[in-house]
Simulated assay, not measured.
Amino acid sequence: MRRWLRQHHYALMVSLRRLAKQPFSSIANVLVIALSLTLPIVGASILLSAQPVLREVSVSPQLTLFLEQNVTAEQNRALAQQLQRDHGDVISSVQSIPKAQALNNLKSNPGWSSALSVLPGNPLPDALVVSLRDSENQAEEADRLAADLADLDGVDTVQLDSEWVRRLQAIMHTARIGLGLLGLGVILVVLATVFNTVRMQALTQREEIAVARLVGATETFVRRPFLYLGAMTGIAASLIAIGVAALALVPLNEALGHLAASYGAQFALQLPDASSLLLATVAVAILGAAAARWSVTRNTRF
């Protein structure tokens, strides 16, 4: 165990010395990876911060069933019970709005009170407001339910505005795909940058590696400092990217705060939780080590 620790300590010190010998190149490589990592971190912050707001917006899509004029109060209640019984898996609640209540609500609005006062009677129908349960495919379920309810006896018209739900889902789906493609691009940047860095280091240390092999050094011993080099590059770039992303959110939150305040709301972007950031840092370190191993294996065959 002590020998294993001594070997890894030696490899780590060798990697640090190699980085210190070329400070400008090392810093440039770390910054390239860090800036590439900043974009997906900010994108993930926007998506994660928007999720609670979107859940509040789309938590209860509704259908409004306007009943025929000849439907009685008893038939109205029976229809509401039938909806709960037959479609309880997708319906959260059914609210009955009598025509008299709807008329009074309109009369309470000054813009409608004068116009409604000249009507001889109540032209409004009874209505049932159907709230749907939250689900992954709200728009599709709302469309299917609207088509089924339109054929019920006593139902004159079904009003459904599911287009905004569909658009919202499409926007979120597109954003997730874009973030995934951005993450793939970052992976390629990390691989290419670390591969090229290790390649230059391997060519620079060509004679040293050859001598080490002559005195009996194993391939694992030769590769280990380069693996540490790739991992440390990934860790340093990840930490810098997290710091840059946190700084970038400050002006964004200030602008979004003014915009949200104009709508009487509060909204702020937040970085992903610490466990997610730690997991991402470890993933980048592993990716850097893998790229380093690939590079040193290809470029030290001499």
Rank of each mutant, 00 (worst) to 15 (best):
residue 127 A to I: 03
residue 28 A to L: 11
residue 290 A to T: 14
residue 119 L to H: 07
residue 283 A to H: 08
residue 224 R to I: 03
residue 172 M to F: 01
residue 18 R to F: 00
residue 100 A to L: 11
residue 191 L to G: 15
residue 189 V to E: 11
residue 214 L to E: 08
residue 59 V to E: 12
residue 248 A to R: 11
residue 191 L to A: 15
residue 226 F to L: 08
residue 2 R to D: 14
residue 20 A to N: 10
residue 71 V to P: 14
residue 103 L to K: 12
residue 139 A to K: 02
residue 132 L to Q: 04
residue 174 T to N: 01
residue 222 V to H: 05
residue 269 L to A: 05
residue 35 L to T: 01
residue 268 A to E: 06
residue 38 T to P: 02
residue 231 A to M: 10
residue 20 A to K: 11
residue 22 Q to N: 13
residue 216 G to R: 06
residue 137 N to E: 05
residue 71 V to H: 05
residue 277 L to M: 07
residue 90 V to K: 02
residue 215 V to F: 07
residue 102 A to H: 03
residue 268 A to R: 07
residue 172 M to C: 00
residue 204 T to N: 02
residue 182 L to R: 01
residue 227 L to V: 04
residue 82 Q to M: 13
residue 37 L to A: 15
residue 80 A to G: 13
residue 289 A to P: 05
residue 239 L to Q: 09
residue 253 N to E: 09
residue 178 G to P: 02
residue 187 I to S: 14
residue 123 P to G: 06
residue 18 R to V: 11
residue 155 V to C: 05
residue 282 V to K: 12
residue 298 R to D: 05
residue 156 D to C: 01
residue 201 Q to V: 00
residue 99 K to N: 14
residue 203 L to N: 13
residue 126 D to V: 06
residue 20 A to E: 13
residue 136 E to A: 04
residue 121 G to I: 04
residue 172 M to Y: 00
residue 292 A to L: 03
residue 38 T to C: 06
residue 81 Q to M: 09
residue 124 L to H: 07
residue 88 G to V: 00
residue 285 A to S: 07
residue 255 A to K: 02
residue 188 L to P: 12
residue 170 A to S: 10
